[in-house]
Write a protein that binds this DNA or RNA. Sequence first.
DNA 1: TTGTAGGCGTTATCAA
DNA 2: TTGATAACGCCTACAA
Lengths: 352, 352
Amino acid sequence: MLPPPIPSPPPGRATIADVAREAGVHASTVSRALNPATRGMVTEAVALRVTEVADRLGWRPSAVAAGLRTRKSRTIGILVPDLINPIFPPILHAVETVMAARGYATLVANTDNDPAREALLIERMATHLVDGLMLASAAAGTGALALCARFGIPAVLINRRMPQGADCAATSAVTNDDRHGIGLAVDHLVALGHRRIAHLAGPEGVSTATDRRTGFLDRLRHHGLEPAGLVPAAAYTREAGQVAMAALLAGPPFTAVAVANDMLCLGVYDAVEAAGRRVAADVSVTGFNDMPFVDRIHPGLTTVRIQHDAMGRQAAEILLAEMADPALPRRDIRLVPELVIRASTRPPQEPA
Amino acid sequence: MLPPPIPSPPPGRATIADVAREAGVHASTVSRALNPATRGMVTEAVALRVTEVADRLGWRPSAVAAGLRTRKSRTIGILVPDLINPIFPPILHAVETVMAARGYATLVANTDNDPAREALLIERMATHLVDGLMLASAAAGTGALALCARFGIPAVLINRRMPQGADCAATSAVTNDDRHGIGLAVDHLVALGHRRIAHLAGPEGVSTATDRRTGFLDRLRHHGLEPAGLVPAAAYTREAGQVAMAALLAGPPFTAVAVANDMLCLGVYDAVEAAGRRVAADVSVTGFNDMPFVDRIHPGLTTVRIQHDAMGRQAAEILLAEMADPALPRRDIRLVPELVIRASTRPPQEPA
DNA sequence: TTGTAGGCGTTATCAA
DNA sequence: TTGATAACGCCTACAA
């Protein structure tokens, strides 16, 4: 059971004026006493009395009223392309946890990879006076960062970077070291004896896709090999993975494929089976992300594990820091991934 | 490239007063012209001119200022126990999509199943003046609903119901028909010939766990059978599933187990293998939820599919309706699940 | 149909 | 250290 609802202010909640009256001081004094930042300006005795009255009346500061005055909402926004993609929930979870611990609420929105929708959502967040924005969605060429700049909203990119040129340096980013990561997969396949290795790439224009493709080619050439095939997927989805893998299978032969992302791998498995072949036995497959449960698919997926949680936490910390001091130099954090070897990779049947 | 930033109001954004001055009308007229609800009160010509000026100045209404006046933030909150659990992202996605389409922003927070944290987050959301709250987290006995009532925040439960008594009827809920769903699994196992069937239940006090357990027992008795074992998991996690399954395997023999949730099933698979037995061949397993990718685990999980997306959408619609008219009668929606048969269930080896 | 005035709850500035 | 006053940007009776 709940303590009997406070009788005094029946409809709305108690305001600072109610507390002031009850405590026999002026409203501004109440404000100072109750705001941790200004508490020092007030006599200890007054602070105590005010706090007691505030508690008794069940007073809670109105974030809205305070926000109108201070132009700060103690709210941040996060834009993700697609919450259904399992790499985003852990990131969001980490961001939300850090933000909540610092007293910030988190607005989420799905862009569904639609730049127009993304722009609309940024505008709406600006309207809500978010103190900062976390962009997990910004595809290259989107005006997201320009919008943030226009509204004066500090922003941090997460799991995405802007292309090299342009306002790249103007925004901090926390990403995985994708080139290094895909290199780990290539090294592993080469060590197993594979020579005809294909790449199933991510969608065009997405920084993770670009980096992984570049990294794949670089590392392959480092081993003196050329790609046995390279097809980009239309999106990071299971269906797109199936389509792209079918295309690869229809082309020149290969014994292994390095795939740009785990979600695509599900479709890759589908396509391999549909073609009457077997993952691992006939064609080795590596993924990227180590998303939940890929250890349980069959055969267990060899993949590159990225640090979702650290990504969310670090991005949150950086955003908080830049919100506090916008003049801070921008940062470009690359988290180091690791290879997780499971059952989807084996030495090739017929060594090339 | 962006159009050159509007020169007029360099620091802050344009306000309604700027638009009024520029358009040669009073601020209140601007407000009326720009607010869809009151637009009719104003001459078409004036409306046009005001709109044009507003566009030119890049004016956006301040949700904060409007909220202070109207006591509405055009924001809703959603509390989830754990965003990492894959059944929540699709629900959140659906809720957010519906809300965004109606112009609402969505605040998310993770409770991590901690009632104290839940209470804190509800308070914080109240502080932010959320217009409604979606509770996917309320475990039985939590004061969440009482808090909402105290703050006057409309709330809808999603994937959770309050226990029968108490303020149950006072809150709308959108849930899966869990008793029916688990019954489908039981019917399937019985039809395969299983007679010694165990139940790996969900954590105590969670409505889905209670309903599924009750439904399991009812349906089993309907077939004239008694449970061959019943162990609750400590939480809806893979680890808890493994522990509980190990406990079941240490007890009386059974040929099939109906598990309260897919996440638990991952641990069940782990435990079965650790015991040197095989899922399907030695022990049939059914799950619940049909979470993403369980079709790809090995052997493919037979499970009860629930309508995540419909759940989120309907709950959002109901919340919007009750926000608009709090006097609306409360609703208790049960969505109908379906059985998805895959490879984890087979006739028993030695018919009982 | 439009203008006037006041207030939503808080905080910042200025005096005392 | 505290009080008075104004302002944040918008909305809404009420009056014209």
